[in-house]
Design a protein around this nucleic acid. Structure first.
Lengths: 204, 204
DNA sequence: AAATTTGTTAACCAAATGGTTAAACCATAT
DNA sequence: ATATGGTTTAACCATTTGGTTAACAAATTT
């Protein structure tokens, strides 16, 4: 890995760290491997990021700040619930195909580090369900969708979209699919999932 | 942790190892911590299980052999699809409430270790979608349920049931729920999820 | 151009960690 | 009681690993 002039050392480190941390997690990652991937001396990691924990946090916050806006399209957008579901599903799956390690990484490290989420919640732009809740409650009251709590609907939307990527090896094994077929299944889900959800909540 | 007479050393080790590995993963787990939790000398771990990898595999296979039969109730049971969905949803959520770390552990380690799944698939009782696929295709043909591929339906069932436990910290943060409320949400899902799925695939 | 700051490296270090060894312990068979 | 075999322990070891240091190089300031 050679240095290019438009990519400074700090960025290169962060990029190498992203790859290693997302593939191996905090505990499995090695500072030496990150240095090698970045094509620099190990001491540089400490020069720029002080220690492993801080480098990890830089990677994690970076990853999380990619994910959060995606969720905000469901939670804080002005479109109807139907539209939200359609948009989110299609966009999110495209997004994850570009960042396949991301959801797993975030979920994994959040599970290992309880107080991590606290720091994130302090952030103003941390996704929040309040607006979505009002919207769902209203559409339920007005008979536009079937009775369902906003929390459960939101969990279902997240589950149907995120889980297939998190559990990829498990699902590939159970369904006997190879990588190619799996990719096709995920492509199909861009519309399938939205229909599945909407079917479930639409009034007859 | 005292030894009880009906629990021999080997079992104690496995039990301690289960707790540590499931909480911290292969990389984060420490042999010394396992020994301490088991109340024995570290050398005993090697006496009974040779090395960390083998001890880990014992724990992993144990965990997986708890999960697999659960999935087989969806895939290889003789009941109707409706019944399967209802039974699986209710049973699975009860099951996971008893083993909260399990799905995360399995998913995590499977993602880290590509060839792990190969070994598992060699096992005769490894869950397989074939029978379920025939059933879904037939019910679709007969107009009993809406058109959907068995793979997608199976993925949806798994996603809706497993994801909420895997992503617990994330969901708790987004939905602003405490542990008590979260538990209630999961209880509710025992019936909610089945209804959600069935609503989505039933013909009108 | 001299001085100072910033970036980079090789060599080093202490602690942690998985694993080993040799001796001791203890139940049971002889 | 004593020899035997599995079980358990304390002490030890080699390697890995995150992190430091001191010297060097390259900009940047004066």
């Amino acid at each position: 890995m050679k240095k290019t002039k438009d990519e400074n050392t700090e960025e290169q480190i962060l990029n190498a760290a992203k790859n290693v941390f997302q593939a191996k997690g905090m505990d499995g990652a090695r500072m030496q491997e990150i240095a090698d991937k970045a094509g620099i001396n190990k001491a540089m990691l400490h020069y720029y990021y002080r220690n492993k924990q801080l480098l990890f946090e830089a990677v994690f916050n970076n990853a999380f700040s990619l994910l959060a806006p995606q969720l905000n399209t469901v939670l804080n957008d002005n479109s109807s619930i139907d539209e939200k579901i359609k948009n989110f599903t299609s966009n999110y799956i495209s997004f994850i195909i570009k960042h396949p390690y991301l959801p797993n990484f975030i979920i994994q490290e959040l599970n290992r580090n309880e107080d991590f989420i606290m720091k994130l919640k302090e952030n103003k732009s941390f996704p929040n369900i309040e607006k979505f809740k009002k919207q769902v409650d209203k559409e339920v009251r007005n008979g536009l969708i079937k009775s369902i709590s906003a929390e459960q609907l939101f969990i279902n939307i997240m589950a149907l979209n995120i889980f297939p990527f998190v559990a990829k090896p498990l699902i590939m094994a159970f369904t006997n699919t190879d990588n190619e077929h799996y990719k096709q299944l995920m492509e199909d889900r861009k519309t399938e999932v939205a229909n599945f959800i909407i079917n479930s909540i639409k009034v007859l």
